[in-house]
């Protein structure tokens, strides 16, 4: 074998691996469950906002429309590409009307009604709220928006959804209409489900890697006191954990676990042997944040996002054996098994 053909073979191996990683069709069960969780979390966020709408949006909000726009448009010498039409809506009744529509669209996405349309719309509306509500956002807003963004690339309404019911109802017409087949996709393996899953998986790896590296620059994450400092912030506290001060071995152990788990997540979440432990770590870490540091929405959403590493085949076996077997019979060679 010549050197040229060896290089071609070596390079070809990488191309094949790349293709398998991104373009191998996979079942949509994981993304469908995630749609349900993201939809409910977004819906909750919008309903809570509805009770305080003019506190966060409009001309009399904490950060007024004009001030919110100025944060982005270069009025103070620095600008960015964030933009929202909500900067221009002053009228409280128009804001309420818009918000009502947003809740309706998000609820439709959550229950999986016309998900091909409500998915992108839910994400877009959420993005408009984010660029309007600069200053009032936190990690929850980030992860819920990213997950919604990736889910719209997948047939995430094909299972556990109203779309699945509609698909059965319109079965005869669907077989003749390409538009209906696109609008009401079946729960079969698809490249879209795989791409959406991979993008969210990689995005999570980036979040944890840089979250860990940023912590590694701080002394308290090395001497172990960071966990004490975290539970010592009254504004985050939902359960008083200051008793931990008397147990330095426990709180320093928790600190070291957090740092190392975050830094090594991007490597250890991929091998099947270490994945369950990393997922268990995610449940412990984010469960703790949800229960003790007052960020229930953030904790729940991060645990749900980590669910993207749960194989759809496993969910199929666990949850809907019959649907899984049906899919396996129809497409035995393309189930995305590695």
């Amino acid at each position: 074998m010549t050197l040229g053909s060896k290089v071609t073979q070596w390079f070809g191996g990488y191309v094949d691996a790349w293709d398998r990683f991104w373009f191998q069709p996979c079942l949509p069960y994981t993304v469908c469950i995630l749609r349900l969780v993201v939809g409910i979390m977004l819906l909750y966020s919008h309903v809570v906002l509805a009770a305080n709408l003019t506190v966060f949006l409009g001309e009399t909000a904490w950060i007024s429309n004009e001030a919110a726009q100025q944060l982005h448009d270069g009025s103070f010498g620095f600008s960015d590409w964030g933009w929202s039409y909500l900067w221009m809506i002053d009228s409280p009744w128009l804001l309420q009307l818009h918000h009502g529509m947003t809740i309706l669209v998000t609820a439709s996405f959550a229950v999986g009604l016309l998900t091909r349309l409500t998915g992108p719309l839910t994400w877009f509306l959420q993005l408009m709220y984010l660029h309007r509500m600069t200053g009032a956002l936190f990690g929850f807003d980030q992860i819920v928006t990213y997950t919604a963004m990736y889910l719209m690339l997948a047939p995430c309404g094909s299972w556990l959804s109203v779309d699945a019911k509609l698909r059965k109802y319109f079965a005869a017409r669907r077989s003749e209409s390409g538009l209906l087949r696109w609008l009401l996709p079946d729960a079969s393996p698809s490249v879209g489900a795989n791409i959406a899953s991979r993008l969210l998986q990689l995005h999570l790896c980036v979040i944890y890697l840089f979250g860990g590296l940023a912590k590694a620059r701080g002394q308290s994450w090395w001497d172990g006191t960071a966990m004490w400092l975290s539970v010592g912030i009254y504004e985050y506290q939902s359960v008083d954990m200051t008793w931990l001060a008397n147990y330095p071995r426990i709180f320093t152990g928790m600190t070291h676990f957090t740092l190392f788990w975050e830094v090594f997540y991007c490597a250890l979440i991929w091998p099947r042997k270490t994945r369950p432990f990393m997922l268990l770590g995610a449940v412990i870490l984010h469960g703790g944040i949800a229960m003790f540091l007052g960020m229930i929405t953030f904790g729940v959403m991060m645990i749900a996002a980590n669910g993207i590493f749960v194989s759809p085949e496993w969910i199929g076996h666990f949850w809907d054996q019959r649907a899984f077997q049906e899919a396996e019979k129809s497409e035995p060679a393309q189930l995305g098994k590695e």
Binding site: G82, Q142, G211, A214, K215, W221
Partner: peptide, 16 residues
Amino acid sequence: QCLYIDRGYAFFAPNP
């Protein structure tokens, strides 16, 4: 910036 993915992810970092 458009997609709001221009974040640093430095939660509780470098020190709480």
